[in-house]
Amino acid sequence: MIFFWAFVVGGLICVIGQIMFDVFKLSPAHTLSILVIAGAVLDGIGWYEPLIDFAGAGATVPITSFGNSLVHGAMQEAEKHGLIGVVTGMFEVTSAGISAAIIFGVIGAIIFKPKG
């Protein structure tokens, strides 16, 4: 069942993105920034975790999860170290997406040439 909900929830988040592209004429960078902020806010009010439990990758694969995990990292550290933790814990949970993108970006630049 989780596979079905992953498909539906993931697809619906993409539809929201498409509406921001086509109806509000936002650029991809604007759209993705807003979605990340939305993810952070949703986690702040405690709605994103239940969505992950419900839809699995449908909630963790869209870029909104990036905002969610940033908040999570910050909160984990904040519980231990108070306000300082908010700053230092930020990347604790999220590092995978950014480091993978940077590592594979450099490898890509070494082995590939743009096709045009």
Binding site: G17, T31, G105
Partner: peptide, 24 residues
């Protein structure tokens, strides 16, 4: 696919990797 391939983390990866390859 439009946002279908831009919103998942693969879109984030594509933005980073395509820039890296292009500015080589």
């Amino acid at each position: 696919a439009g946002a279908g391939s831009a919103v998942p983390v693969t879109g984030f990866g594509n933005a980073v990797i395509s820039s890296a390859i292009e500015y080589r």
